[in-house]
Each structure stands twice: as structure tokens, then as C-alpha cells.
Simulated scan of single mutants.
Amino acid sequence: MKRTLALGGLVATAGLLAAGLSVPAQAASDVSSDTLASNTAALQVIKYWRGEKFSNFLNATPYTVETKVATKHVSKGGPSADSKPGVVPAIGDEKKSSSTSKNVNLPKTTGKVFFRGSDGKPHWCSATSVQSTYHNLVATAGHCVYDTVTNKATLDYWVFVPGYYQGKTPWGIYVGKTAFTHYDFDVYEDGDRDYAFVTVYNGVQPSWDTTKHQLVIKDAGRLGDNVGGQGLAYNQKIGQPVFVFGYPSGKHPDGNQAFTGKTLKWSYGKTFGATASAIKAEELQGIKSSFTGEGALGSSWLLKYSNARRLGYLNGVTIGVSDTDGNDRYDTSVSPYFDGETYGVYSAAKNSWSGKIAG
């Protein structure tokens, strides 16, 4: 699907993050949920990724579906809050640090989601762990969960691996259980609602028993207990600075290979309003960033990020990148604006239990 984006709106005055949590009204009919893998099917998912010495992980390529956002016309518009601003606190190491490091400490919560695409091949996007009741929730772009190419619903063999690097799974492999999205994205592929919250089973660390010649699945515990979980912020003022964390890959339009997708990268800047009428997206937010689109889909936009705690508030997810000045270099990433309806989808997901994988 070809997407056309129009950027607009003045950068708003930076505002303070709301101190309390405001719970907006949210109709249950606005939330769609689909099962990614049953408890027993999760074992087959692990076998798919663990088999042949993690070859499917190693051979996976960045997801390229709907990554490029063409920008030709500038128009006014952008997001607006639908209720009071609110936040959900993060979970993680509460110890305060006196570190004065000038480097950006990368979050443990970020990783890659792997799945099999409509082409039958393994692919990946970026994602992050987010706070939830059972410490089992992942946030990413909606089209990194739903197959918008064939419209056959969810993508197959969906797993999240925080801190993934070259076949290594330091905190385990987390199989997706249930995907929660907004009804308008599930049915209409509305760009304003291109986000997903996915519950995952307890992590596992699979290994091969050379004596018994069989796969051994060891429970690694809950996602949030192992890496923490980012908070959530919604109905925030446009114009505040955010960090964007993800695994960009691919080339710029001019052929320059700026990122490999192998290591976690970050961008930083202030958000601004954006619209994309061609995809019924009138309330997007953008940020100036050199991230290329492949692999960066699902990157986490973190407001008020603490370099000491490596935690902040999730306030967006990358759904595409754009070359807005026509110089053949991507310079902008875009995300849906997180509002009360986003909080409603999150609320449906945050109290959903998943548990351990059988066996």
C-alpha cells in the first residue's frame, strides 16, 4: 500500500507531563483482539525459531511493508487531545543513580519482534516492553502484528526478543499470546491507529540436549520482571522532546547504507503535528530523524526518558519514515498520536494474563 504524508502544524510549546492518571471513557467496541498462539502452539513457535541453530533468527530480514511515506504537500493540521493528559508509571529498577554520564544509556526494554511474513520468510520489527498488571506486555506498530498485505489477520510465529543480537537471546524468547489493536486499524487500516499491544507468555531459554537429542525448554520468567517496562503517556502536548529507540536498517533513497539493523540506535528531537489524509490519518506526530524505515517500524518514542533508570513514558511507535525535503535522505519518522483511545486499547491489554508455556 502506498502512503502519502502531509506534514503540518507549528511546534507547540513544551508542556509538563501530567502528574496523575486520567482515565478517559473508552467503548469496548473500539478494541480488537486476536490470539497469536495458544499455549500448546507456543511450543511449535519456539521450535521454529530455535531449530537449526537459530537459523530463522539469523536469516530474518527487516520488515519492509509500508515503511516509506512519500511527502509532497505541506498542509496544516495534526493531533489534538481527546481528554485530559495522563500517564502510567514505568516498572523497573527504582534505585536512583548519581551517574553523570553524557552517553545515552540504552533501555533494556527494547528488542526485536520476529514473525513469518506473507512471503513465508522470517522478518523483524522493533518493539518495547511496557508496564502491565502481569508484566507481560509489548508495544509495536500495528502492521508489525497484522498482515496488511494479504489481510489474513495476524502474522505467524510472533515472538519478542529484548536485547537480541546475532542469535543471542539474553533475557529469553517471549511468544506472543494475544494482540490488542484499535478497531479502526484492524478493519480500516487507519494510520491514526497503527499501534498494537501484545501480551506474551513467560520467556523461555531453549537449548539442545545432546544426550537425549531433544529440545529443552527452560522457563525464564516474566518479561517485565527481567527487563522492566516503559510507562505510557497519552494526550500529551505536541512539541515535547522524545527519544526514539529502534533497530533501523536498509538504505536511504540515494543508496547510502546508514544502518545495519544489528544494534539498537536512538534519535532525539521535539515532536510536531502531521496529517496523512491518503490513509485517513489526520492526527499523527512526527520527529526529525535520520532513521531508515526498514527495521525501525515499531521503534519506541519515550517521553521524559531517564538516562539513569533507562525508563520513560511510551508516547508513540514508528509507523513509517519520510524524505520531506526531497534530497533522497530520510529525515522524518512518524507515529500515531497517543490519545484516550490509545489508552483504551492499552487498558484492554494490560490486565490480560498469559502465564507459562506448557511443557
Rank of each mutant, 00 (worst) to 15 (best):
Q166D: 12
T100K: 15
A179Q: 01
A179F: 10
R193H: 12
T169W: 05
P79D: 09
N202W: 04
N103D: 10
Y63Q: 08
E66V: 15
P107K: 10
S75A: 07
V198A: 09
F185Y: 14
D190C: 08
V87S: 00
D147C: 09
F114A: 10
F185G: 00
G120S: 02
Y146I: 07
T148H: 05
S80I: 12
S83K: 02
T133P: 00
Q166T: 06
E189M: 04
V187Y: 10
V113C: 07
A90I: 01
K68Q: 08
L106P: 02
Y164H: 09
T181A: 07
T67G: 09
V149I: 09
G78F: 04
K121W: 00
G191K: 12
T181C: 11
T128R: 01
Q131G: 01
Y195E: 13
T64V: 07
D93T: 13
A70F: 09
D192A: 02
V69K: 04
K84Q: 14
V204N: 03
D192Y: 02
Y146Q: 08
F115Y: 14
D82W: 11
K102F: 11
T154M: 08
G120A: 04
V130A: 03
N103R: 09
P107W: 11
F197K: 07
R116A: 03
T148L: 08
L155H: 12
G77V: 07
V87K: 01
D192V: 01
T71S: 12
Y165P: 01
W171M: 03
Y201S: 11
A153R: 14
T133G: 00
G163H: 04
N105G: 02
V161R: 06
T150E: 15
H143P: 08
T199I: 10
V175C: 12
W158K: 10
Y195G: 14
Y134R: 00
H182M: 05
D194N: 15
G120Y: 04
E189I: 00
G191P: 12
V88D: 00
H135L: 09
D93R: 13
T133I: 06
D156W: 05
S98Q: 02
Y201M: 12
D194T: 04
K68H: 06
C144H: 05
Q131M: 13
V87P: 01
H123E: 05
K72Y: 14
P89C: 04
L137A: 02
F197G: 04
H135T: 03
H73T: 09
T169Q: 13
N105A: 10
A90Y: 05
K102N: 14
F114G: 09
Y146A: 06
H143F: 09
K68E: 04
F115P: 01
G142V: 02
G142L: 00
